[in-house]
Design a protein around this nucleic acid. Structure first.
Lengths: 200, 200
DNA sequence: GCCTTTCTTCATCATTCGGTGGTGTTTTGA
DNA sequence: TCAAAACACCACCGAATGATGAAGAAAGGC
């Protein structure tokens, strides 16, 4: 699956960090597709073209692999930073556009992982919540100074969460196949209204 | 967990359909909490105070149990029916209010189940999509006759999906702890705008 | 009473899982 | 050149899983 790359050499051997990366990629794909307990270390190793023991060599335990796979893809943070660069009254469209473009570009795996079953009872959900809080909510609330800022941002969070789940996880039409531009045109103003509109 | 009910008699024996129901309840709880592969038949049986073999006796396989547990709770359908009873311009608040009240009242298990990992690759997501389509989307679209009805309804779907996930699955504040009334006041008008507002 | 059906338990199988240890092979660098 | 580190494979363990089959105990019909 993540195979067929030359692996630096036809035959064997090489790198190390390369195998590690292959394992990580396979893990992200499988965790996203099958959840935590539905994903076996053996399957990850097989999809990475690697011995199962290597997974433990690199990540210690299955939980360690999961944590490593959960690390947000590097391009997310800078993209998010751009969201807050502009003015407040175009924040709505910028939020939804950044979200969609970032997730369309990447394999939008992190969210898919995060919305699925995690190790203990729902650690991933905690992680998701913390991520959204840390990266989005706090900064958004800082820009609003309305007394109901928390509720406004909460509504926005719920909305973009729904869009993300609808488009990437549940694949609910027509949101799943709509173009980024159309979704931005649709949802951006609504988000904006949630943020800065009159008390709904 | 689902124990301590007299089970018809202090000691043992009796019923049949009763055991079946206990198994179903335990299954719903566990599938919701731990996902499909994270839930073992043994754990379901234990929580139901029943021998593991009973589960197979009643439902054949783990997959059969899952399917049975997925049957929508009976109160959802009539509640949804009420949504479409009123006028179009108060549809937004009715949708969100019905959703919240229904899920607050029940154990809001179905959604939790449906957003989690399912047997094969993502059967539950298909089920969720089909359910929303069948129960909500089609009827909503029938009431709108705008050319962009599909997109409007899609946006509404994404929004309520996000609210449900935020409140019941991810438990993201402040949506998770807000009162129904506040959420309705917040989100209802926004939904309404998605439905019948000017072309956003 | 008895015999059938329904419900329940127990013992068990084959498989698979997460995880470990040992050993071999390649690479590094002194 | 050579030893230590890093990487890779294999065999294997104990535990848990999904599932089966046989047999026992209550309920119901006759």
């Amino acid at each position: 699956m993540t195979d067929d790359l030359p692996a630096t050499r036809p035959g064997r051997w090489r790198s190390g960090a390369q195998s590690r990366q292959r394992v990580l990629d396979a893990a992200r794909t499988l965790f996203a597709a099958r959840g935590y307990s539905g994903t076996t270390v053996r399957a990850v190793a097989a999809n990475a073209g690697v011995d199962p023991a290597m997974v433990y060599y690199f990540f210690g335990t299955k939980q360690g692999l999961f944590s490593a796979a959960l690390e947000m893809s590097p391009q997310v943070a800078p993209a998010l930073h751009a969201v807050f660069a502009g003015s407040l009254d175009s924040m709505g469209v910028r939020i939804i556009r950044t979200l969609l473009e970032a997730m369309d570009a990447s394999d939008h795996v992190p969210l898919a992982i995060l919305t699925r079953t995690a190790p203990h009872h729902d650690e991933s959900e905690v992680l998701l919540r913390e991520f959204i809080d840390r990266e989005l909510t706090d900064r958004l609330m800082a820009m609003l100074d309305a007394p109901d800022a928390a509720m406004r941002v909460g509504t926005v969070n719920a909305f973009i969460l729904g869009v993300a789940v609808a488009r990437y996880v549940v694949r609910m039409e027509p949101v799943a196949s709509a173009s980024v531009d159309e979704l931005v045109a649709r949802i951006g103003p609504t988000l904006q209204q949630c943020l800065t509109g009159p008390t709904a």
